[in-house]
Amino acid sequence: MTRSQLPDWLRAPKPYTYLKKMIKESEKKSYGSLFKSFYEFEGAYEEHYKRVMGTKSWSIGPVSLWENQEELDKAGRGHAKEGEGKRTDEELMRWLDSKKENYVLYVSFGSMNKFPTAQLVEIAHALEDCGHDFIWVVRKNDDDGDRGFLEEFEKRVQESNKGYLIWGWAPQLAILDHPATGAVVTHCGMNTVFESVIAGLPLVAWPIFSEQFFNEKLVVDVLKIGVSAGAKEWRNLNDFGSETVKREEIRKAIVLVMGGEECVEMRKRVKVLSDEAKKAIQSGGTSHNNLKELIEELKSVKLQKGI
């Protein structure tokens, strides 16, 4: 990790630094911890956590798989709020249906992240130049310049049928599960990482804040199921920072995950993890067994305390 990729509260003492220290101390005093991960994904860390913290822990994920197994559930995940966006989910699915398998890039930076105009311009040019069709989930900004640029960009790619912009919320699971979707550009929020892995898709990692730079290291360097977009600056939420990732770097990362020998190997590795994720929550799977163990242990504790 470079210093600029570390959260600011780790670089210099802040009130949040002391809050995090209190949280860590409370973890050591707790009965145990639940992880939304699964053992096959980061079991080495799970074992390390148990040794360091000295408490019990259970990985019971991927949590989204317990909840979103039916097509209706997937369609409802991240469903657009009334009045948001100009086009319907049905239009989006028809657009995806018209595309070749593994040919569409899905670009989403989560529900809280926004970029300055200069960065939006670089992303837009990279998407136009990458040679693949794309879906880009755009967060609304108050800047009229942003809005005007993006609306003009949307009109251009809509006319060429190469791109699809979603303003606001997107039916993410339905998009990830579609055969036309070939890879994901993500901020490395762990929910999106898990959902992409479950769908068997390699990732372009573009961390922004929180623990996302650590997640990038896991995805790119440890699991080797993605590549870095080149972001090097951790920033606070709603702070644009000083970094602009250039279109050449973005395009290079997209090309790597969408084709070529390296992409084939990444797809093989993420497919193995996808299969393991699905097995984990099935009867006899690691997360299924952990959840049963947790329930039985809590029942036992309850009886001992006479609750």
Rank of each mutant, 00 (worst) to 15 (best):
T88S: 15
K302M: 11
E248T: 02
T181V: 11
E151N: 11
L6N: 07
K114R: 13
L92G: 01
V157M: 05
Y164G: 06
R267H: 00
P207L: 10
V121A: 13
K36V: 15
T244S: 15
W136Y: 10
G189H: 02
A199H: 01
F194R: 07
E91V: 15
L92N: 02
P15W: 11
K20L: 15
V204A: 02
E71Y: 01
Y164I: 06
E276D: 08
L256V: 14
A253S: 10
H178P: 13
V107I: 13
K279G: 02
L19R: 11
A174E: 04
L92M: 15
Q158Y: 07
K278R: 12
H79R: 09
R251E: 15
E122L: 06
M258E: 02
V272R: 06
Y106A: 04
H79K: 03
V270I: 06
K302Y: 14
D239W: 13
K292T: 08
D239H: 15
E91S: 03
S98H: 08
S108V: 15
K232E: 06
N238H: 11
H288R: 00
G131P: 03
D142V: 08
T17A: 05
D146P: 05
R77D: 12
E262D: 07
A126E: 08
R51E: 12
M93I: 15
G54M: 08
